[in-house]
């Protein structure tokens, strides 16, 4: 464990204001640490990594870390990432989005990125709420939960990000939590190395906006809840079924080798240009 924090500091932009903007107990810092450890473990040069972020709390992550970073518009991070990856397929493009970012305003881009299997890694930091704007309901807010815009409880069902990305054709789909940091390192590393479109949904607690309104006394309560309400998918009898006790399965849900769009495109191009010569 000795060098964990040390190596993270090697990747931070120390000319930025620290501590970072995230609230006390916010899971996003843990995910950022996990992401840095994964990139480090894979031995990727900083120059080859592009971190594309959307708008919202998760969007602020990009500025702190010394990769090529692009802070884009709300919901559209994947479209920029697609352009960057197609323009320079050598780059490892990682897209950080929140649940509102990726699933509400950017839902269309998410399913199409999955469908075309573009070689981008989507990290969806699901805190079940719009944090930056003050705690409004998102498309991942569980039914019945309280937010600023659902003061009497949300009437709508929450998206299951894993199910949707699987259905849309993503070739690597996983779910982790901020509490299970070691597992999260593994999930993010495999996602980054995966050739096609990879999605990692991370349950990342928002104690300030979501927790307080929904009977969590503090950040610690939320992590305890994550600890006891999740179950490793590989330990389930039937991994395709959701557990009866309502626990959230975490782990890898799909991992199939399929060439990414950029690979297929440049393969086609080589073929066409060979014919043309």
């Amino acid at each position: 464990m000795a060098d964990v924090t040390q190596l993270i500091h090697d990747y931070l932009r120390h000319n930025k204001k620290f501590p970072h903007v995230f609230c006390a107990g916010c899971g996003h810092g843990i995910v950022l640490g996990s992401l840095i450890r994964s990139v480090h473990a894979l031995g990727l040069p900083k120059d080859d990594v592009v971190l594309v972020a959307g708008i919202g709390c998760s969007g602020r992550m990009a500025v702190y870390v010394d990769f090529n970073t692009v802070h884009t518009t709300h919901g559209r991070a994947l479209t920029f990432a697609t352009g960057i990856k197609m323009a320079n397929p050598r780059l490892k493009v990682i897209c950080v989005m929140g649940d509102g970012d990726a699933m509400s305003i950017g839902g269309n881009h998410l399913i199409h990125a999955a469908r075309r299997n573009i070689g981008v890694t989507a990290l969806i930091l699901n805190n079940q709420i719009y944090g930056m704007t003050g705690g409004q309901c998102s498309s991942a807010t569980p039914q019945g939960d309280i937010s600023m815009t659902t003061p009497f409880g949300s009437l709508e069902k929450a998206f299951d990000i894993v199910d949707m990305c699987k259905a849309a054709g993503a070739s690597y789909v996983a779910r982790g939590t901020s509490f299970h940091a070691i597992q999260l390192d593994r999930l993010i590393s495999s996602a980054i190395m995966h050739p096609g479109f990879s999605v990692v949904e991370v349950f990342s607690p928002c104690p300030t906006q979501y927790g307080r309104k929904n009977k969590f006394r503090n950040a610690v309560d939320m992590y305890k809840w994550l600890k006891s309400n999740t179950v490793k998918v590989e330990t389930l009898k039937d991994p395709t079924q959701k557990p009866d006790d309502g626990r959230i399965p975490i782990g890898v849900f799909r991992d199939v080798e399929e060439p990414g769009l950029e690979e297929r495109y440049f393969e086609l191009q080589r073929k066409l240009m060979g014919q043309n010569r």
């Binding site: 924090t5 107990g25 509490f179 940091a181 992590y223």
Partner: peptide
């Protein structure tokens, strides 16, 4: 006991465990 939990889970990178 050098389990490393605090270092991995500190959201603010404020803890370091050193031998």
């Amino acid at each position: 006991i050098n389990c490393g939990f605090c270092e991995l889970h500190c959201p603010d990178f404020a803890i370091a465990i050193k031998p």
